[in-house]
C-alpha cells in the first residue's frame, strides 16, 4: 500500500512539482494551499509525511507543524522554503523537524530525504 503525503504550499506550481515528484516515487499525495485547510485534512486522514512551505497566507509552516503534533500518530514534518535560512529558525522549532528542504527541490534531494526517513523495510 503506497504511503500518503500531505503537501502544503500556497504556490500552485511548487505544490504541483513536489506532488508529481512524490507520485513518481509511488506516494499517494494530497495537497492544500494554506494552514487551516491542512489542519482539517490532518484531522480527517492519517498521513505518513507532511511537507509544508514556510510562508503561507494565514501564517507559517510552523502552524502546520502544530497541527501535525496534535495528531494521534504525528507524521514526520518537513519544512520547505526559498526565503529564510534555517539558521534563522529557533532551535526549538528545528528540533521538531524531520527534514528541511530548500527550493528548488530536486528529485534526488527528495529521494535521499525519503530514504533517510523511511529506510527500506520500515513498512
Amino acid at each position: 500500500m503506497p504511503r500518503r503525503a500531505l503537501v502544503v504550499d500556497d504556490d500552485a506550481v511548487s505544490r504541483l512539482v513536489l506532488s508529481h515528484m512524490l507520485r513518481g516515487l509511488d506516494w499517494t499525495v494530497e495537497q492544500t494551499a494554506d494552514s487551516p485547510e491542512a489542519a482539517a485534512r490532518l484531522n480527517a486522514t492519517d498521513f505518513d509525511l507532511v511537507i509544508s512551505d514556510f510562508q503561507l497566507p494565514s501564517g507559517t509552516g510552523i502552524d502546520v507543524l502544530h497541527a501535525v503534533e496534535q495528531c494521534p500518530r504525528p507524521a514526520p514534518f518537513v519544512l520547505v522554503t526559498g526565503i529564510i535560512g534555517y539558521s534563522s529558525l529557533p532551535t526549538e522549532v528545528t528540533g521538531r523537524l524531520a527534514g528541511q528542504l530548500t527550493k528548488p527541490v530536486s528529485s534526488e534531494t527528495l529521494r535521499s530525504m525519503l530514504r533517510r526517513l523511511f529506510p527500506a523495510g520500515s513498512g
Partner: peptide, 20 residues
C-alpha cells in the same frame, strides 16, 4: 511582497533563477 514571494516560489520550482 506576498505576491512577489509567491511568484518567486513558482520561479524556483521551475529553475528560473533570474526571475526568482
Amino acid at each position: 511582497r506576498f505576491l512577489a514571494h509567491r511568484l518567486r516560489g513558482s520561479s524556483l520550482a521551475l529553475g528560473a533563477t533570474a526571475l526568482a
